[in-house]
Computed example of a mutant assay.
Amino acid sequence: MTVRAVERLSASETDQVLALAAAAERADHVYPLSEDVVLRVRGSSGRHLLAHEADGSLSGYAFVEDGAGELFVGPGARRRGHGSALLEAAGEGPLRFWAHGDEPGAKAFAVRNGFERVRVLWQMRRSLEAPLPDAPLPPGVTIRHFRPGSDEQAWLGVNSRAFADHPEQGRWTLDDLRLREDEPWFDPAGFLLAVDIEDTLLGFHWTKVHPATGDDPALGETYVLGVDPGGHRRGLGVALEVEGLRFLAAEGLTTAMLYVDEDNEAAVALYRRLGFEIHKADVMYQRS
């Protein structure tokens, strides 16, 4: 087995990584890569680590950038040192890795290699067939759709302020936003903006629709919900969430999902009040 590092994957390598990830999902019932890493696999530069068997077939993959990344090994190559080889290739020093699904095997691997559990990201779900509470918009606030080519800079400003303390979301750039605008799932009609009478952006609710896969029904996601702390209107966050869920229900979806950090007590409390419950967890492990 050998590990090779490349800055950008070829079309063939991209197909191999995504095929191996799909095989891991079938075996583990959880997809091993986040959306952000999938976007990197499809065409962005970065540090891609590829583990190959002697016959040249792909057996494992890792992506590492700025001391953080994701790593997985294909179902047929586990317990043979492939994960440790990828970790060694990632380099020494501080490193953080996401483990999707909070699996015992990932925990054992992390502990064995000197990592500790430092962050938990919950996926929460609720039925869209259950009633939604009344949550009126604050006075003077209206909802309109995102306008591609016009609203990017205003949205980036609100997003960076709303998520100033978030390790990923608050660092989004125009390239990050446009990458998602180019995705097949992007729908400006489901990207709801709360504005005042002067069309100043106050907050947003961005939705995403996941097609049905395997045993999972089609899912409507609260992709990002944010309110500008500088122009905060009482109750705007709840009102935006309800507006977004109503949009997803009107699209014919029956289940909604979202991601939230376990320790974000205010957000967790809001989502629980709206009927969301924990469905699964992703865990970040860190080596100091």
Rank of each mutant, 00 (worst) to 15 (best):
A162D: 02
L258G: 01
P32R: 11
D28K: 03
D196L: 09
I197A: 15
G101K: 03
I278M: 13
Y31S: 07
R42T: 05
A27Q: 14
G203Q: 07
A154G: 15
V195Q: 08
E198C: 07
Y31R: 13
P167W: 09
N159F: 00
V283M: 07
E241H: 14
P131Q: 10
A250R: 13
V37I: 13
P138F: 05
R234D: 15
F204W: 10
S12T: 12
E65G: 04
V209N: 03
A269H: 15
V227I: 07
D15M: 03
G76V: 06
V227F: 02
H82N: 03
G220T: 03
E243F: 00
L50A: 02
V111P: 07
G157T: 13
L156R: 09
R178C: 02
G252V: 10
L20T: 12
D216Y: 13
R161P: 03
M284E: 12
R42V: 04
E262T: 10
V38T: 11
E241Y: 15
D28E: 13
L253R: 05
A19H: 05
W172I: 07
D261K: 04
G226Q: 06
H279N: 10
V111L: 15
G214K: 01
R171D: 08
R26I: 00
T200F: 08
F72P: 01
V242G: 02
R272I: 01
L39H: 15
A11D: 12
D36G: 02
Q16A: 13
D36T: 07
A21Y: 04
E181C: 12
M257R: 12
D228T: 01
R234H: 15
G214L: 00
G237N: 04
A89L: 08
W172N: 12
N113W: 10
E168I: 13
G81M: 10
D182Y: 06
E53P: 10
R161H: 11
G76L: 14
L193S: 09
L156S: 00
A108L: 11
H279A: 15
R119A: 09
P148Y: 06
L236T: 02
E88K: 14
V111G: 11
D261Y: 09
R147Y: 01
L86R: 00
Y259K: 07
L71K: 10
L39W: 13
P217M: 05
P32M: 06
V38S: 01
G60F: 09
R26V: 07
E168F: 14
S12G: 15
A269T: 15
G157P: 01
A189C: 09
G275M: 13
W185F: 11
T254M: 07
P104T: 04
V111Y: 11
G220H: 06
G244V: 00
T200K: 13
E129G: 15
L192Q: 00
P133F: 12
G69Y: 08
P133K: 08
Y61M: 10
G81L: 08
V73Y: 02
V283D: 07
V6D: 04
D228R: 05
G69C: 11
V209Y: 05
L274W: 06
L192M: 02
E265W: 03
R125L: 08
L225K: 12
V6N: 05
Y285P: 00
V242D: 02
S288Y: 08
T200Y: 10
S160P: 00
L248P: 09
G226M: 04
E70W: 05
F97R: 05
L193N: 10
E221D: 09
G114F: 11
L156K: 06
